[in-house]
Design a protein around this nucleic acid. Structure first.
Length: 490
RNA sequence: GGCCUUAUCGUCUAGUGGCCUAGGACAUCGCCUUCUCAAGGCGGGAACAUGGGUUCGAUUCCCAUUAAGGCUACCA
């Protein structure tokens, strides 16, 4: 009953959207965001999210990229309901429609070679005219040639008086985000549909697949706006209905150009390796060009789906701001489960730390307040466990002398000995050491203690470090410091 | 060159003709907290691209200019 009502409301097939990456590179952040918006839209309206691998370009496509795309889509939690379909496995379908178009003279074989095309093009650049191929074979119905082109239909001439007027033909489509977009067909030119009968090109394969897969909404990047009239032209020639279009604004580099490898990390995997959580990336990507009606910014995927409204998607491109990404990630890390963080950190490439799991868990517990990325835990863990080489003078707080400092460290050691067998942890050490610090001056006691434990002028607090290091190592380092101070006194 | 798109703090954005002295977040700066560094709390500075209209009234509507970006393949 519910399903029936839903179908009634959404039309025959309901909402069906797709993400159509081409496996010519690792999962790009832009592709991932497009996938995210499609996913959100599908879930919001109880529709289906379809994965289609667009691998018609055999030379540039690679299985390793396909694998990366699939793995990282899953990592982000963007699971698809159908697919993956592969265009390379659907060649006979395209062939069927290509033959139909050829037979109905809506497409034709173009006999011109790459070289001839280039020459024509160079001439057009020199003359500053529109860059399109004007084929002298468009009505010759050749049975073969260099490639198959779409024959752009000419508007019917209008005769007024003794004048014949050729009206400009135009394509107007409704974009959910941008409202009406208008194109004249003339400057489009007879574009290529396929290299040959069994090698379709992008614009053609997309139209066929979207029709065959009953795609209701095409949500994709703004860089496809110019392709849309071509695709609509093919749909009309084949008597297909036109899906709803929504063109997302681009993700930009700080110089406002389309986000590219030259300026930033563009693949999802790179962000994963740097220690960003999938929750962060999903949240952040959703906020790039979209905003809920309230001011809420930290949102889980279900929450985003809940309040998502496609009409609120921005028209202008959005710069990818790593600083805000870092902040968001730090917010998620703070709330994350310690055990889960431990697992993730150990999976990080190049993560090396001289500490056991229970120490690491303590470090995570204390250190997650200061981490922006998982990778930061390397430096954080070091600051807890690794003793830096340091000059004896560093032990002196402001203008406290070596003698007093040594005395304070000695007293500190004594107190630590008292709690050796019982509360040798953060709260215990703090409880017993703070009275001394308060009576002798906090800086006078705590500063040398912290330097003794770390050899650093900047570090986490001494009680946390004592907890991580344990009694043996802590006392060893304090003894070392006392020795250093003795040398200073002599 | 042609076509298309876009235009609010440095950045992401709120805003759909009067609620705007333009709100929030990141970043930045200051203060508090504090043994240091972070984290946290409080506060400050910071924007409607320009010029014309329309209107009693424009950030908001229209036009132009400017600027930025995208597309212009036998890539997708």
């Amino acid at each position: 009953m519910f399903k029936f009502l839903k179908r009634l409301f959404k039309g025959e097939n309901g909402v069906r959207v797709r993400i159509a990456p081409s496996p010519t590179g690792y999962l790009h952040i832009g592709t991932a965001r497009t996938a995210l918006f499609n996913y959100i839209f599908a879930k919001k309206y109880g529709g289906k999210f379809i994965l289609r691998i667009e691998d018609t370009d055999l030379e540039r496509s690679d299985k390793k990229y396909e694998k990366d795309i699939i793995e990282n889509l899953k990592w982000l939690g963007l699971d698809w309901d159908e697919g993956p379909y592969r265009q390379s496995e659907r060649l006979n379908i395209y062939e069927k429609y290509l033959n139909k178009l050829l037979k109905e003279k809506k497409a034709y074989w173009c006999p011109h070679t790459k070289e001839e095309l280039e020459e024509e093009r160079n001439g057009q650049i020199a003359n500053k005219t529109v860059l399109i191929h004007k084929c002298d074979a468009r009505d010759k119905d050749l049975s073969r040639g260099e490639l198959i082109r779409f024959k752009i239909p000419k508007a019917k001439p209008v005769i007024s008086g003794n004048e014949t007027i050729y009206p400009a033909d135009s394509i107007i489509f409704n974009d959910i985000i941008r409202s009406q977009v208008h194109f004249f067909t003339d400057p489009i030119g007879d574009f290529a549909l396929a290299k040959n009968i069994s090698t379709p090109l992008y614009n053609f394969a997309v139209v066929i697949d979207d029709y065959e897969m009953k795609i209701s909404h095409v949500i994709r990047g703004e860089d496809h706006i110019a392709n849309t009239p071509k695709q609509i032209l093919i749909q009309r020639a084949l008597n297909f209905s036109t899906p709803q279009y929504a063109h997302l604004p681009l993700i930009l580099d700080p110089d406002r150009s389309k986000m590219s490898k030259r300026h930033s990390a563009t693949s999802i995997e790179e962000y994963q390796k740097q220690g960003y959580l999938p929750e962060t990336l999903v949240n952040f990507m959703a906020l790039l060009g979209w905003h809920p009606s309230d001011n809420k910014e930290k949102m889980s995927l279900p929450e985003i789906i809940q309040c998502f409204d496609i009409k609120r998607i921005q028209k202008g491109g959005a710069i990818f701001d790593v600083q805000k990404l870092d902040w968001l990630n730090s917010q998620y890390i703070k709330k994350y489960d310690n055990e889960a963080l431990l697992k993730l950190i150990k999976q990080l490439p190049d993560f090396e730390i001289a500490a056991n799991d229970s120490q690491l868990l303590k470090i995570i517990n204390y250190g997650k307040e200061r981490a922006a990325t998982l990778k930061n835990f390397q430096a954080i863990a070091d600051s807890y466990t690794r003793l830096n080489d340091y000059k004896s003078e560093m032990l002196l707080w402001k203008n406290t002398g070596a003698k007093n400092t040594k005395e304070n460290l000695r007293k500190t050691k004594e107190i630590l000995f008292v709690i050796l067998e019982r509360e040798f942890n953060k709260s215990g050490s703090e409880k017993y050491l703070m009275p001394l610090a308060d009576s002798q001056g906090r800086g006078e006691v705590l500063w040398p203690l912290r330097v003794a434990l770390t050899g650093r002028d900047k570090s986490p607090g001494p009680f946390e470090i004592i907890d991580v290091l344990g009694k043996e190592e802590s006392l060893k380092r304090i003894n070392m410091a006392i020795e250093k101070l003795s040398n200073l006194i002599i």
